[in-house]
Amino acid sequence: MKSATIPPLRVTQELRQAVEGVLKVDESLSSFVESALVKQIEFRKMQKEFIARGLAAREASKQSGKYIGKEKSLAALDVILDKYHSSQ
């Protein structure tokens, strides 16, 4: 597969210095930017899927007429958080 390029990115000197200040040993600016792009793409895909699941759940609730109140939802999340914190 042929490689492609990303258009040049113009940034402030301060931003460039900040990036260069956090590069790992043997990490190039190009590899840092590529990694950031990959992570942002993955994040946006997960975000899109999350929203789609939420909208589907909303539609399913409308169809069935069954809803879970916020108190019950928050209590369930608290249980998950408690389990997480106790395992740390």
Rank of each mutant, 00 (worst) to 15 (best):
E20T: 07
T5A: 15
H85P: 02
A57M: 15
I68Q: 09
A57P: 06
Q88E: 02
L74W: 08
I68F: 12
F32T: 01
S61R: 13
E71D: 15
P8W: 10
F50K: 01
L23T: 11
A76C: 11
L37V: 15
S28K: 04
Y84W: 12
R53G: 02
H85W: 04
Q47G: 00
G21K: 01
V22S: 10
K45G: 00
F32L: 10
Q88D: 00
P8K: 15
I51V: 06
L29P: 02
Y67M: 07
R10V: 07
Y67G: 10
S73P: 02
D82A: 05
L74M: 14
G65R: 14
I41Y: 02
Q88V: 03
L81D: 13
S64T: 15
R44Y: 05
S61P: 07
Y84S: 05
V25S: 12
M1R: 15
K66D: 08
A18M: 03
E20I: 03
V19Y: 01
S87D: 00
V22I: 13
M1L: 14
E14R: 07
I41K: 00
K24A: 09
A60F: 10
S3V: 10
Q17C: 02
S31K: 08
M1C: 14
R16P: 00
R16E: 14
G54M: 12
R44T: 11
V33S: 10
V11N: 11
R58T: 00
R58C: 02
R53N: 06
A18T: 03
L37S: 09
V19M: 04
L9G: 00
S3Y: 12
Q63T: 07
E34M: 09
L81V: 11
A57C: 12
I6E: 04
Q88H: 04
D82L: 09
L77V: 13
V38N: 15
H85I: 03
V38S: 14
S86T: 05
I51S: 04
S64P: 07
K83G: 05
V79W: 09
M1G: 15
D26S: 14
K62D: 06
D82M: 03
L37M: 10
S35V: 01
I41C: 00
S61C: 13
A52E: 11
A36K: 05
G54V: 04
A57Y: 13
V22W: 05
K24V: 04
I51L: 08
S87Q: 02
R16G: 04
V38M: 11
S31W: 03
K83V: 01
V33E: 12
S61K: 11
Q13P: 09
Q47E: 08
K62L: 10
P7E: 05
A56V: 06
K24I: 02
D26E: 13
Y67W: 11
F50V: 00
D82R: 15
I51G: 00
S61L: 07
R58H: 06
S86K: 14
A57F: 14
A76V: 08
S3P: 07
E20H: 05
V79K: 15
A4K: 11
L81K: 12
A56M: 11
L9F: 10
L23K: 05
I80Y: 08
V19I: 12
E34T: 13
Q17Y: 03
K48V: 10
T12N: 08
K2C: 01
S28N: 07
G21L: 04
A56C: 09
E34Y: 09
A18P: 01
Q88R: 05
A52N: 07
Y84M: 09
V79R: 15
K72C: 01
L81F: 11
F43G: 01
V22M: 12
A52G: 06
